[in-house]
């Protein structure tokens, strides 16, 4: 047990607990805040994985924007925000079963894979992940198409969402 592992376990545990709270808590606003906690935990996981950029982006995008969007949406769709009636539907047992099956299936798959315990390669000292990302995102031989398509996707989402959400009286 290295300090790293301890930190990981703490973070992962907290994240999973937050995630569970997200799906189980009755107060939908609290669920949103729990989601933020879970996402923050994931950001910490990214940081542990040396993906600093992704970690920061996780915070910026999820906590800074998506979470706020969720909270706004919650506010816009509740007459009584303290509504704490049952939040589970009738099929929740079936859902739980399926979820458990999924986890089991995945775990079973992991068990049969031999590369699971490979060590992470060292990151070269001169390696700058952000710059590398920049060149790959703009290189015609790499990911320029996803890069541009992402903007089209965002455009479509924006126009669509704005159009749907906004209805003039």
């Amino acid at each position: 047990m290295t300090p790293e592992k301890i930190i990981f376990l703490i973070v992962a545990g907290a994240t999973l607990v937050s995630a569970l709270m997200v799906v189980t808590t009755r107060n939908i606003v609290h669920a949103a805040f729990w989601l933020i906690a879970a996402l923050f935990g994931v950001a910490a996981i990214f940081a542990i994985l040396n993906a600093g950029f992704i970690a920061v982006v996780q915070v910026v995008v999820y906590i800074g924007a998506i979470a706020i969007l969720f909270i706004f949406a919650v506010m816009l769709t509740r007459k009584d925000l303290r509504d704490t009636s049952a939040q589970q539907n009738r099929n929740w047992q079936a859902g739980a079963l399926i979820a458990a099956l999924t986890f089991g299936g995945l775990a079973a798959l992991f068990q049969s894979w031999e590369k699971l315990s490979v060590a992470a390669p060292a990151i070269p000292s001169s390696f700058d992940a952000v710059a590398e990302l920049g060149s790959q995102l703009t290189s015609p031989s790499a990911y320029v198409l996803p890069f541009e398509v992402a903007s089209v996707l965002l455009l479509a989402a924006m126009i669509g969402a704005v159009y749907i959400a906004f209805t003039r009286k």
């Binding site: 995630a19 669920a31 589970q88 995945l106």
Partner: peptide
């Protein structure tokens, strides 16, 4: 960890009544 997170999310998707949830 990711499988667990995924499963929890899936559970939420399958069982929550509220669309936002």
């Amino acid at each position: 960890f990711s499988a667990a997170l995924f499963t929890i999310g899936l559970f939420g998707v399958l069982t929550r009544r509220n669309v936002i949830a």
